[in-house]
Write a protein that binds this DNA or RNA. Structure first.
Lengths: 376, 376
DNA sequence: GTAGCGGTGGCAACCGATTGACAAAAATTG
DNA sequence: CAATTTTTGTCAATCGGTTGCCACCGCTAC
């Protein structure tokens, strides 16, 4: 059967297998790199490459398809053959080839995560959360960054789409429409932004903001400044609205100030505007701004919180290293990452709603940078 | 030939192609999910799934293999066909299927990175460096963590090995032998540890340590304590040796103290031993230990640096948030990550030595936590 | 005794791209 | 203009799993 006894060339393609006794054509030793004299000792599989289901099949004396079933469809084969195959697999130290599996099925056991800027510590916790939940379910995390550019982001997303089962977009910069287009292809979850028709994980900012404003009001502050983040940031808008609402409720005055960039440097630059505003308490779009602001104010001889209270946002790593430690509205970053991954996994397996917003809780963490005014 | 004269079905598989006129078997409309009545309108490729080289071939009127060559082997096909194919590809919005490519070739355009603990900020910069260089060369980064366990680490590494072209191990916890075994399979680069016979990227600790010790000596310190990291940490050992050598050279006394864990908490716990040691200056295995130590000493009313100088290691994010800001021996973390990726890419393409140690430079960053003793 | 039936296992067709071998066409040369 | 070399394109096999369909097996039931 399938005698490829041809001296060279003409490999007798798929010769008619006499139905009953023809073994698999794999029997034929036609090594891929026949040109390279690597001399593959056939049968023992010692050379490059790992064991395949065909090897297992040979050892266990069954058909490859049976091996495939035994290994992925529990209950589809008899316990006896199951054991036989499992033993053979263990003996050969078998591991499935993810690519070979992905090709026909499309399943890759891989989740993609795109962050706007790996440099930004806010994303550290999101990455952590995502990686750890993914790992628990035996999914691998693929990480990419968009360098704060909407174009790069879209390109990166498209590239990742090909290799992952689902995609997580953390604080995406691209259009709502682009996101929806992506989501039509494969499951997508967005963190820190609401997009109609797409699964989103957004922290409930209002609780933490309410706590912060009430705390400031209780300490006698009357005018509160909010240092905003980048204009494209959906979150920045929400936080400002939250601050306004909470101030209205507590009958405080709220003013909005802009920042050049949401970094320590940006915080430093905002100091002048803050002082000019006459506010005695400041909430900033994120912790980095708060830290920069505090450094600059302190350098100018202003007491924190004696003369001005500062409250940040997020509670990033290091927020408690400052002197005084930073009071901040903690966003459940790690949980958001984790929730996003869970949601994605749920869709991939159980199946869930197509559109849903998860509300994680934010809370005020009172440290040293906020407090009563000290009149001297 | 091949008469499998089954009564019905029988899609005439791989019918002997009369060499000259038989069209490709793909022509036959036997959709995969024939059971699901999805009614794939044949030819226009509008349903699920993306365009393939077969679609391009059909549009351009050439053979699929020609398409493959046009798209990956520059110069192998004529400019005319090249253009024809590229246009068709663009028109169909074609993207290669990475799995289909990986299956025969083994190339995945993916790099794996395993870190001991995603929680540890030291790794953030390594991740950044790796991701950015990988991205520049159009490689994707796959991230995994080993939860500080040698066993998990090895398992994770084995899992990743299947999907990546090369692997980067940041501060690995596993055996030298296990690492070498991994390296036999695919290119491996180790960061922050030297393993005989494996490519390594290790910072040259001595320069920074020398600067630190000389600086302390210049400020009149005579006895220096080193708070060590985990016993399994190769780096911790090297740093202690460096401190000893530098102290010998400057004729200072060096004592080694142990820590329970390399975290802020561990630093706090080390405060007692530090005070008991009688040293007036401390170097710690990493910044986290330094920060915890400083917090605890300050809480006990000790002046930093007036009564005791503290020097950390690494210069992680946030090291300059403290009051006083932390003096530290900066390790080129980001560059290490980047170098590791570059090295890997070099092996995968150009080819380089099999064993090589890259020495990146460390340097002292003087901030506020070190200085002269203030006798009162 | 035979029809009916659920449980098992085998066959072969895929998934989409790559590549060695080779043939046809084109370009070069004598 | 024929002989030879170089391009250029085609064929078919292959990577390693997955899966629809069918055949066969041993049982029970009528």
């Amino acid at each position: 059967m399938t005698e490829l006894a041809k001296p060279d060339s003409v490999p007798t393609p798929r010769e008619a297998p006499t139905p009953r006794e023809a073994p698999t054509p794999r029997e034929a030793p036609t090594p891929r790199g026949a040109s390279t004299p690597r001399e593959a000792k056939n049968g023992a599989r010692e050379g490059r490459g790992n064991a395949t289901i065909y090897d297992i099949a040979k050892v266990a004396g069954v058909n490859p398809s049976t091996v495939s079933r035994a290994l992925s469809k529990p209950g589809r084969v008899s316990v006896k053959t199951q054991k036989l195959i499992e033993d053979a697999a263990a003996g050969l130290n078998y591991h499935v080839n993810p690519f070979a599996r992905a090709l026909p099925t499309g399943r890759t056991s891989t989740l993609g995560l795109i962050v706007a800027d790996i440099t930004n510590p806010t994303f550290f916790d999101i990455i952590r959360g995502t990686e750890s939940t993914a790992a628990v379910r035996d999914y691998t995390l693929v990480l990419a960054e968009s360098a704060e550019s909407a174009v790069t982001e879209l390109m990166t997303a498209r590239r990742l789409m090909a290799t992952v089962d689902g995609l997580i977009l953390a604080s995406p910069r691209m259009d709502d429409d682009d996101i929806r287009a992506l989501a039509r292809d494969k499951p997508v979850v967005v963190i820190n932004r609401e997009v109609e028709g797409v699964l989103c994980v957004v922290p409930d900012v209002n609780k933490g903001i309410g706590e912060a404003v009430r705390s400031l009001a209780a300490h006698g502050h009357q005018k509160i400044a909010f240092v905003a983040g980048p204009p494209q940031s959906w979150m920045s808008g929400r936080r400002w609205e939250g601050v306004q609402a909470a101030c209205d409720w507590s009958r405080l005055e709220a003013v909005r100030l802009e920042s050049t960039k949401p970094t320590i440097e940006g915080g430093r630059q905002a100091a002048r505007a803050v002082r000019a505003s006459g506010a005695t308490a400041v909430l900033t779009y994120n912790d980095l701004l708060a830290i920069g602001l505090m450094q600059e104010l302190q350098a100018a001889g202003i007491e924190v919180p004696g003369q001005i209270s500062i409250v940040g946002f997020d509670d990033i790593f290091g927020a408690d290293f400052t002197t005084p430690p930073l009071t901040t509205v903690r966003a459940p970053l790690r949980q958001s990452g984790s929730d996003a991954a869970k949601l994605l996994l749920q869709i991939l397996h159980g199946g869930a709603e197509d559109s849903f917003v998860v509300q994680a809780e934010s809370e005020l963490v009172i440290r040293g940078s906020s407090g009563p005014l000290v009149t001297r």
